[in-house]
């Protein structure tokens, strides 16, 4: 099976006095190297779906297969290890640690994984920053950077442990159109040139236009799933 990420009958209900169904019986399979956009109106459940696919959240029922492994039997620590090794996240707000320099932010996941020593981790971080065109900023703090630069640093950090899949939640939602275009191009190149699987949630139509495959979500269900052109 070539699907790198697969979901089967995913349901996520937010418990409470009035339970809210965020994701309602979604099944899908994502192939290696795909650049996928999940689209939908606010509150449609597209972010919740992304959190379930990214093992950040646990489904009420249904299964997620990551790289051939069924994940529902995993505990919190096992899920954290999968996130560390196989997944990378980019969020709408860059979420860099304000008190750490750019290079320290990028090497955080590498050092947590602990496979590279400090100098090798730094070299890898600089290489990633270079590839994303922000290597000159490596010694700066996040507040000294522009929004587009921060988001590129965030992408570098998401790529730090060479993940299989990059998950992005509104990566261009907080950027002007020029920076947004750059970020979109970077994500597309990651999928097409480096073979990363990129899953992005967005309601930016121009971003969606660049994707290989678009999935529309309405009220927690898949409304449309198509590959343009």
């Amino acid at each position: 099976m070539s699907a790198v990420l697969r979901a089967e009958n995913l349901v996520r209900i937010l418990p409470g006095e009035v339970p809210v169904t965020l994701v309602n019986d979604i099944s899908l399979a994502i192939e290696r190297g795909e650049f996928i956009c999940i689209m939908g109106p606010s509150g449609s459940g597209k972010s919740s779906l992304l959190y379930l696919l990214g093992l950040l959240d646990v489904p009420t029922s249904g299964q997620v297969w990551l790289d051939g492994e069924e994940t529902s039997r995993y505990g919190e620590d096992d899920l954290a290890n999968r996130r560390l090794e196989k997944l990378g996240f980019v969020f709408q707000f860059h979420f860099l640690l304000a008190e750490f320099t750019v290079i320290d932010n990028v090497t955080l996941p590498i050092r947590r994984l602990g496979r590279l020593n400090a100098s090798a981790a730094r070299a890898r971080g600089l290489e990633l920053l270079d590839r994303l065109g922000v290597v000159e900023q490596s010694a700066k703090y996040p507040h000294q950077l522009s929004g587009g630069q921060r988001q590129r640093v965030a992408i570098a950090r998401a790529l730090a442990n060479d993940p299989l899949i990059l998950l992005a939640d509104e990566p261009t939602g907080n950027l002007d159109s020029a920076s947004g275009g750059t970020v979109r191009q970077i994500l597309k190149d990651l999928a097409h040139e480096m073979g990363k699987t990129v899953v992005a949630v967005t309601h930016d139509a121009s971003f969606a236009a660049a994707a290989d495959r678009r999935i529309g979500i309405v009220d927690g269900k898949i409304d449309a799933d198509w590959r343009p052109g």
Binding site: E76, D77, L87, F91, F95, R112
Partner: peptide, 16 residues
């Protein structure tokens, strides 16, 4: 809290 959330999302354990 945001920093903690981001650390956990990138794979830090509760123990870390």
């Amino acid at each position: 809290t945001h920093d903690i959330a981001i650390l956990k999302s990138m794979g830090f354990h509760a123990r870390d």
